[in-house]
Design a protein around this nucleic acid. Structure first.
Length: 484
RNA sequence: GGCGCCGUACCCAAGUGGUAAGGGGGAGGCCUGCAAAACCUUUAUUCACCGGUUCGAAUCCGGUCGGCGCCUCCA
């Protein structure tokens, strides 16, 4: 199956052709760990997970590298502003190292809750200072740097293709620039490779370097670490759209300047989650974390499902209504899969075993659904369409219950919204044995009440259980219950 | 001021030249002691607006209005 992806470099859909057949090497810009991730940040990691799962699904070997930026960086790109890590540490009365560990741990917990697979390599900036210094030295040797005011800068004028990714026109940028001018810079787009001249005396993170004691500029870590783990040329670089004009533009400049050859083949960017009035950000007051959604009663995978409802390259509107819709949809989906599983079991067929194995041959009807699903995914990750195909598969009566469960399992290898678990018959929240006994006792009492036409008592029990999150369903074969 | 994206039903959202996916919600039916759940039916002759190209446009072109992102740390 050919996978087509939208390459920001060139702004067009392209068939993915890896440098090495059968292997997809990708680098994703990770978090700066000075605060909790908000759900807008997490949307991007869900998108990246969908991509890596897609490659796995189509039998690629995936080498996925993600950095953790645990070095303090300034709130702007010059030598002004405040160091975010230091600010956070001061506010919370902790060391910068503690801050980094704390928020890094929180971040990976969030990823796990969202069924986001861990990259093959997760690398911390502070563990790779030597790699960065090495790369900067190469830049220096090739004449791309200059020293000014104690800091070492990258000279964008020396790099012909600067700004190609972002379609930047340097002349126009200069005319429209309204940033404070760093007097040390020869060009406004020049950026710091190594700081020695920080105005922050309390900078806790400092390292020795050929240019003096200090710390690296922000952009260099991604170039240094990606090359360290993926080589000087690799397939894909991922990130949020906000990185296109500055961060990724600078990464390309310094990487290709250092090696003298093309660096990354495909640049793929995820769009923002937006709220009424604009994007999610701390300053705007709309800072929502995954944990806060859980406190509101949502399952983390409800949020993942929500993310799958929109294409990764379009802004997605986050509202309470739309998240509620996602939660309801996911619950209905899991219910449907569970019912189909029960139906298949009653038919005496085995289900939920050995997903994707040769024993689970699918009939023509089921295969048509699977092909439609795969085609949607392979066409620039059209997950909303793929999700629609899952729904249609489950509703197609011409396909056996067993096959429908099998389809759901296979599709969930990419979607990862809990359908696979449901197909195996496991519940996300298993009730304890005592709870089960108590609930079933109450149900028995209620059914006795119903037989003796004591409907007041029967309804009372039903309401009590409902408050505990247990929903009763009276059917021809008796009363069934489930977690609401 | 410059660059880019978007505007599809009550809501979220696919679709980018061949006659509107999917989900949520709503409505009706069936069932029920009443409910709930399931199931069935239904919910945009129309894609912000105005022109144009075309046999044919939500999809292409031009304009108008509206929203958003970036140009500054940012997913």
């Amino acid at each position: 199956m050919k996978i087509r992806l939208y390459n920001t470099l060139g702004r067009e859909l392209q068939v993915f052709e890896p440098l090495e057949a059968g292997t997809a090497r990708m680098y994703a810009c990770g978090p700066t760990v000075y605060n909790y991730a908000h759900i807008g940040n997490l949307r991007t990691y869900v998108f990246e997970d969908l991509l890596r799962r897609t490659f796995s699904y189509f039998d690629y070997t995936v080498e996925h590298v993600m950095n953790v930026t645990d070095v303090g960086h300034l709130t702007d790109d010059g030598d002004e502003g405040e160091d975010k890590m230091i600010k956070s540490a001061r506010e919370q009365g902790k060391s910068v190292w503690d801050i980094a560990n704390h928020f890094s741990d929180a971040f990976f917990r969030d990823l796990e809750k969202l069924n986001i697979q861990m990259p093959e390599v997760v690398c911390k900036a502070t563990d790779h200072i030597e790699d960065m210094i090495g790369l900067i030295k190469r830049l220096e040797e090739r004449g791309y740097t200059y020293l000014a005011g104690g800091n070492l800068y990258f000279d964008v004028a020396k790099f012909e293709k600067y700004g190609e990714l972002a379609l930047l026109d340097r002349a126009k940028l200069q005319a429209g620039a309204r940033v404070e001018v760093d007097v040390n810079k020869r060009n406004p787009q020049d950026f710091v490779l190594w700081f020695t001249n920080s105005k922050f005396d309390q900078q806790a993170m400092q390292w020795d370097s050929p240019w003096g004691r200090g710390y690296p500029g922000w952009h260099i870590e991604c170039s240094a670490m990606s090359m360290r783990y993926l080589g000087e040329q690799f397939d894909i670089h991922l990130g949020g759209v906000d990185h296109i004009p500055v961060h990724h533009t600078n990464e390309i400049a310094q990487s290709e300047a250092a090696t003298g050859k093309p660096w990354v083949r495909y640049w793929i960017h995820g769009e923002f989650l937006v709220m009424t009035g604009g994007k999610m950000s701390k300053s705007a007051g709309g800072f929502i974390t995954l944990e806060s959604l859980e406190e509101m009663g949502y399952h983390p995978l409800d949020y993942r499902y929500f993310c799958l409802g929109g294409h990764y390259r379009t802004q997605l509107q986050f509202t309470e209504d739309s998240l509620n819709a996602a939660r309801a949809a996911r619950h209905n989906l899991l219910d449907r899969v569970r019912r189909l599983r029960n139906e298949a079991l009653q038919n005496g067929t085995s289900v939920g075993t050995a997903v994707g194995s040769a024993e689970n041959e699918l009939g023509d009807g089921a295969q048509a659904h699977l092909r439609a699903f795969e085609a949607a995914v392979a066409e620039d990750l059209n997950i909303p369409k793929a999700l629609a195909e899952l729904w249609q598969s489950l509703k197609d009566d011409s396909v056996s219950a067993q096959e429908r469960v099998e389809l759901a399992s296979r599709m969930d290898c990419i979607l990862a919204i809990g359908v696979g678990t449901a197909a195996e018959g496991a519940d996300e929240a298993e009730a304890s044995q005592e709870d089960v006994a108590e609930i079933e006792a109450l149900i028995a009492e209620r059914n006795e009440a119903r037989t003796s036409r004591n409907f007041a008592r029967a309804d009372e029990i039903r309401d009590d259980l409902k408050e505990r999150g247990v929903v009763l369903e009276d059917g021809p074969e008796g009363t069934r219950w489930k977690r609401g």
